[in-house]
Amino acid sequence: MLTGQVAFEQRFGENHFDHFARDPELAELFDRSMAAGSRMFDPLPAHPVLIAAAEGGTVVDIAGGNGELLRRILSAHPRLHGILLERPHTIETARRFLGAAGHTARCTFRAGDFAEVPAGGDVYHLSRVLHVWDDDRCREILRHCARAMPDTADLLVVERVLPADGSASLATAWDLHMMCDVGGRERRADHYARLFADAGLTLVDRAPLPLDGSVLHARKIGPTNTGSRSSS
């Protein structure tokens, strides 16, 4: 029967994240499944904004799961510092994971939600986060990021971007999956650009990643950052 409601919530009576938060085994399985797609992250440590911040800067990983992306970035840049913001039940998993990689001394762990994005970082990233939410929630998340970001900070958003020409892409299949699972969606680059603008950010650039992924680079709108350019 078609209800227009999120299938997961209809089946389990609560949203995906609350359900997993109450079941450590399911939460760990979810984190491992997310890490299984980590080949998408392979080129990210070489992104120009991370290279620019490499000499002692701070990268803030917002809702970074078990810390897989942050581990790769800290391993590639030994002078970088990291802050991981996640829900309390995930923080301990990330602490063990990053500790096993030898990064505990360079990483701060913050238990909290999107309203508690740490201020003062040099690079912020949201990896496969925005596609979980509807547009209103995305704007709210991005506004929290923009408030925390210094004027010179960069935001990297990793997502599968829907092709503007309707060509075949993994993003199309994920669009259906996210709609059924959490009520989210995949989006085109121009759609993300509008969400960024609504939050006081501007889309600076977009680069391809493996597995039909993309990294969207955004900055705060200001006197020297008023333009926007992206590929579709």
Rank of each mutant, 00 (worst) to 15 (best):
A148K: 07
C138N: 14
R147W: 01
L80Q: 03
L98F: 05
W174I: 01
G57P: 02
E68L: 06
I141E: 02
A168D: 15
V157E: 03
S169V: 08
P208S: 13
G67S: 10
E86G: 06
L50F: 05
T58F: 00
D212K: 06
T104L: 12
D135E: 15
V158K: 02
I221W: 06
I141Y: 07
A27Q: 13
C180D: 13
L126Y: 08
T90A: 14
R11F: 10
E116L: 05
E116N: 10
G102V: 03
R96D: 11
D151L: 14
L29Q: 15
G222W: 08
E86D: 15
R106P: 01
H217I: 08
T104P: 00
A199F: 10
C145R: 04
G65N: 06
M178V: 02
A35P: 00
T226G: 15
R206E: 13
P150G: 10
R188D: 00
H89K: 08
A193M: 04
L130H: 05
L130R: 06
H89F: 10
L142Y: 08
R137N: 02
Y192S: 05
E55M: 05
R79L: 10
G227W: 11
H131V: 09
E86M: 04
D190V: 12
V6K: 01
V161N: 08
R96K: 13
L84S: 09
G222H: 13
R185I: 00
L130W: 07
A52V: 02
P78C: 02
M34E: 11
G65H: 07
H89I: 04
C107V: 14
G65Q: 05
E25I: 12
G166I: 08
F196L: 12
P208Y: 09
M178G: 01
R139Q: 14
G166L: 09
A218H: 08
R32A: 14
R11A: 14
P43I: 09
V182W: 01
S167N: 07
T58G: 00
M40Y: 02
R137L: 05
M34T: 09
E14D: 10
G222Y: 06
D154R: 11
L26G: 12
S230Q: 11
A7S: 12
P223Y: 03
D122M: 06
E14F: 00
P88Y: 06
R143Q: 15
L162Y: 08
Q5N: 13
P163C: 11
T224Y: 10
D198E: 15
E14C: 14
R106L: 03
D18P: 00
A53V: 06
E92R: 13
V215L: 12
E86R: 05
D190S: 14
T108Y: 00
H16G: 00
H103C: 06
D198L: 13
V117N: 08
G99V: 05
V49H: 04
D198A: 15
V132K: 00
G166V: 09
A171L: 10
A119M: 07
G64P: 07
T202L: 07
E68P: 01
D198Y: 04
D42C: 00
M40G: 06
V182M: 15
A193F: 02
G65R: 04
G13K: 10
L195E: 05
A189C: 13
L126W: 09
P118V: 09
S75M: 12
L209V: 11
T172N: 07
L50K: 03
G213P: 07
T93W: 01
G64F: 07
D31W: 01
F114N: 11
V117M: 10
V6G: 05
A101P: 03
G37D: 11
I221C: 11
L162N: 07
